[in-house]
Amino acid sequence: MTEALLHWGLLAAHALLAVGLALAATRLIRGPRAQDRVLAFDAVYLNAALQIVMFGMRFGESGYLEAALVMTLLGFASSSALAKFLMRGEVIE
């Protein structure tokens, strides 16, 4: 019972994450403004990190958590660089 629950639950979670990715991706591609794109970009990154964790959980692999760690810890660097660029016109002053 727990097995079936786990299996279908994880599958559903993964599918929902995929839907989330698709929605964020739409915003990323359609824009219309740069700020929309940056926020969508950040959302996509977080979604991807969660997908990796989900992947690890589904297939019992723990090696991928490194990638998720890097994404969550350092992924914000690119988002904040983009945000700073939009705010001030340059990244490092």
Partner: peptide, 24 residues
């Protein structure tokens, strides 16, 4: 290929920042 994934992610981040620095 977890090793490649980690490396690719890090390089993505640095490249984005570099390109923004140049875009200015």
């Amino acid at each position: 290929a977890p090793d490649l994934a980690v490396t690719q992610l890090l390089v993505e981040i640095v490249t984005t920042v570099l390109l923004l620095l140049g875009l200015r």
